[in-house]
């Protein structure tokens, strides 16, 4: 309606906006100042821009469907993982590892160079005060920015290469990939895929069974604790959901997790348990299921 000439509007405006024309203030340029094909923002231009927006949105949604947002395992302070910030912080992360930005020079790194660079960026209009706008006529300003961009690309690439090499050297896989693979395997076996932290306590099944005594005697309690909630080793409550009897027997005999748990069978025998007792213990452990 803003453009209608013979409308019944109460107030009719002339010119661009309601900004008052007064001495000393920057008067918004009348668009006749730009000769050529200017067009109304609403609706003409906005509709075209919205078309660009729709194309963009489709691409964006295709990305979100094709590539689900990553999620690793729940935070565990004793986990061994190579720390990695989000990609747009990588250049800063890598930069702060440079010899002249870390160690004895950490103040220079954190405050000095970073402060000057970001400060200069923030105050660019007050440093580059010439009237010239074209970048090729402002060689110093432009080359400083191009240099900064090149440094950012170089540092980001360095950080990523470093990270990939380290991952390869330690044989690690990114946790979100690991989680997805495990979830796929579990799903194929019909097991629950969740890594959620248990909030409800799982009760010990058949607490009065003799196996509880074997559990204490055989030395399991040193790592898995007397209440089976785990200490150095993981909790064994509800372990039957993860392993069956045969798997548990194998774990007792051969250990688990690349030596994280040693083979305990000989220990158990030395503590006076018989092979039958161990077999019963494994059977009892396999019965440990939530509800």
């Amino acid at each position: 309606m803003a453009h209608g000439k013979k409308s019944d509007e109460k107030i009719v405006f002339v010119g661009d906006s309601r900004v008052k024309k007064s001495k000393g203030f920057i008067v918004p340029p009348d668009y006749t100042a730009y000769p050529g094909k200017s067009e109304a923002f609403i609706p003409n231009f906005l509709l075209k821009e919205w078309m660009v927006g729709v194309v963009f949105l489709v691409g964006f949604l295709v990305l979100t469907i094709a590539e689900p947002a990553p999620l690793g395992f729940p935070a565990n302070p004793s986990a061994t993982i190579i720390p990695m910030p989000d990609w747009y912080f990588l250049f800063l992360y890598e930069y702060l590892k440079l010899p002249y930005a870390s160690g004895d020079y950490v103040v220079l790194g954190v405050i000095g160079v970073t402060g000057v660079a970001f400060g200069a960026l923030l105050l660019a209009p007050f440093l580059d005060t010439g009237k010239e706008r074209r970048f090729y006529r402002r060689p110093i300003t432009s080359s400083l920015m191009i240099l900064a961009i090149m440094a950012i690309v170089y540092l980001t690439n360095g950080a990523w290469t470093h990270y990939s090499n380290e991952m390869e050297a330690t044989g690690q896989k990114a946790e979100h990939i690991q989680r997805e693979e495990e979830a796929r395997e579990k799903r194929a076996k019909g097991l629950p895929t969740t890594n959620a932290i248990a909030t409800k306590e799982v009760a010990i099944v058949e607490k009065e069974d003799v196996a509880m005594e074997s559990y204490k005697k055989a030395g399991c309690i040193t790592c898995h604790a007397a209440d089976m909630k785990g200490a150095a080793g993981p909790s064994l409550r509800g372990i039957g959901e993860v392993h069956d009897k045969d798997a548990i027997l194998t774990i007792i005999k051969e250990g688990y997790g690349d030596g994280k748990m040693p083979p305990m069978y000989d220990n158990a025998i030395a503590a006076g348990l018989t092979d039958k007792d161990v077999d019963h213990l494994a059977e009892w452990l396999a019965k440990q299921k939530a509800e």
Binding site: K10, R18, V52
Partner: peptide
Amino acid sequence: NWIDERLDVTPIWRDVADHEVPEHVNP
């Protein structure tokens, strides 16, 4: 118009929406 008589929203609306896009920024 009923709202405009009471709140005088036309100037705000014009400030937000009624301006032109110059040729040199229009793809």
